[in-house]
Design a binder for these strands. Structure first.
Length: 252
DNA sequence: ATGCCATGTTAAC
DNA sequence: TTAACCTGGCATC
């Protein structure tokens, strides 16, 4: 169940193994037409938020979104038979990557690709992210920060676990509104810093000295102060916050 | 063995 | 606002 840091991790790993090479492409499950890609040379693999783009020399780009259940399996021996539900296998003589249960796996032409990119806000894990634009979009949001940070058109790549942990490390309550440029900047800086750690570690990291721990996400008590963590539905997902370390905004 | 939920998003009500 | 998608992990039977 991947947020942006894992997509970027997949992109780096798969680019290292596949980019610049001719690949074998098959769909053991049959739900994707891999024929146009079989034997094609892959140019790049790129993550943007929670999306993955494969660019080929002589075929349309492939867009993958893992949804909540999608995953990749890697086999160092490409002769390993894929499991039956494998939507797409991309392989060289050295490795095979099997895509399982994605919510999207589709060929996109250039205009479609451009439209998808245009629908996404700045991605804290991309080198080309426009920080000023990211701050503008967050500061301009009229919904609570806990809703805005999940909106992929505001920032691309943050999911529910990062929402909980990034808001904790910046001391923001998910229901807070009107962060202003200062608050939005601090939140962006935290996203850039921690999500990069998460990408490198392959998991959410919100405390570099305890990379396996979370402050509030799915916890009963706050790891910093021990107060009972509050949880409730916000923007369709379970939000978590410490009542002490993330003071609730004044209402009314 | 079975049921439920989840690091997500879309489309249908 | 809610169901659907249809996997994996974990709690429960």
């Amino acid at each position: 169940m991947p947020e942006g840091h894992l997509l970027h991790r997949y992109a780096v790993e798969q680019a290292g193994a596949l980019a610049g090479r001719r690949v074998r492409a098959t769909s053991p499950q049959g739900r994707f037409d891999a024929d146009p890609y079989d034997g094609c040379r892959m140019r790049t693999v790129e993550a943007y938020g929670k999306h993955l783009f494969y660019v080929f020399d002589d075929a349309r780009a492939v867009h993958v979104h893992l949804g909540m259940r999608g995953l990749f399996l890697r086999y160092d021996d490409p002769a390993t038979p894929p499991r039956g539900g494998t939507r797409l296998r991309l392989a060289t003589a050295d490795a095979a990557f099997d895509l399982i249960a994605p919510s999207r796996c589709e060929a996109l032409d250039e205009p479609e690709l451009a439209a998808l990119r245009a629908s996404l806000g700045p991605d804290p894990l991309r080198d080309d992210a426009d920080e000023a634009e990211a701050v503008r979009r967050m500061a301009a949001a009229r919904v609570p920060v806990g809703a805005a940070i999940l909106d992929q058109a505001v920032w691309a790549g943050v999911g529910n676990a990062w929402r909980a942990e990034l808001l904790f490390v910046t001391g923001l309550h998910p229901a807070a509104r009107g962060l202003g440029p200062g608050g939005a900047s601090r939140l962006w800086e935290a996203a850039v810093r921690y999500m990069a750690l998460g990408r490198d570690a392959g998991q959410v990291v919100s405390d570099p000295s305890a990379p396996d721990e979370r402050w509030v996400y799915k916890r009963e008590t706050c790891r910093r102060c021990g107060a009972p963590v509050r949880s409730w539905q916000l923007a369709g997902r379970t939000a978590y916050a410490c009542p002490v370390d993330q003071p609730e905004p004044a209402t009314g």
